[in-house]
Write a protein that binds this DNA or RNA. Structure first.
Lengths: 146, 146
DNA sequence: GCTATATAAATTGCATACAATTTAATCAAA
DNA sequence: TTTGATTAAATTGTATGCAATTTATATAGC
């Protein structure tokens, strides 16, 4: 590939991911709005529904986000009544996040989100599964390097 | 797939894209820093190296960004001396972006970026090509819906 | 020509991302 | 055990994204 080809926007894998990620977020937006959540708030809740009672550090490791992003996000979710934030008695450096009853209950409603997401599109479930696997493989190769 | 499986973070295609996109941006960061560019500034320059002398509207269509994001970004690149912004004489509503000599010249240096990106990783060029195609296919299916 | 409509940027406000620094708490080594 | 290093969150500052509104310009009907 020559220089011009190499630098074309449409030949950049990163741009494909970057733009696809944002388009998918747009697909989520109206659906998540019914739950009163933004996309980042949603994946944070997904992580907590999977494992409750975790520190900001652990949550950050799952979501690949640091305290700079998580602290204000968690404060917002706390203000919304979906979770509580409290220091770990055993080690006051850790802040433990716990779902409230309301936060745990929201999972019920949320279970419809993945089903509704690709309604109205021609996206094939098999395609989603295969693609996700490949992206995750790439991710791990990239993470190894950084 | 049951409810629990359906809502697991690792089963979300969106999260795979979202996290992979951000990890790739982290790969770019040190390389682009040598050019004095952020990732968004870089893809904007890619678009301009491909086609100079475009309106904010046209640029936004390529990058899938609106004036809310582009206006401050372009002002920054203008301040850096890489481009100029001027109203179209024929239609003052349009603001035309043009590369400066310096901006055009930066393409030379930038041509090394895609080559250096996956150095130090085990990512296969064939893999990149195939994956990009699939992501772009998905993108178009999603765009059709929105 | 005059006005209603449409269009393009810019602006405003809110929600991320993330590097770098600060603060508070814990651990470790002499 | 005392102090230097380490760790976890929070904070600060900068750069996006994007919805909604505003401003300026152009166009379409009449």
């Amino acid at each position: 590939m020559n220089n011009d080809e190499l630098l074309k926007l449409e030949n950049q894998l990163c741009f494909a991911f970057y733009s696809c990620s944002r388009e998918m977020t747009k697909l989520y937006r109206p659906i998540l709005a019914e739950l009163g959540l933004t996309y980042t708030q949603y994946i944070t809740m997904l992580a907590l529904w999977e494992q409750d009672h975790v520190s900001v550090k652990e949550l950050g490791a799952k979501l690949l986000l640091d305290s700079g992003t998580l602290t204000p996000l968690l404060k917002k979710l706390e203000a919304m009544g979906l979770l509580t934030r409290a220091r770990d008695k055993a080690d006051e450096r850790h802040l433990i996040v716990r779902l409230t009853e309301e936060g745990a209950a929201l999972k019920e409603k949320a279970s419809l989100v993945p089903i509704r997401l690709f309604e109205g599109t021609t996206v094939d479930p098999e395609e989603i599964f295969a693609l996700r696997k490949q992206v995750q493989t790439l991710m791990s190769k990239i993470s190894d390097a950084t």
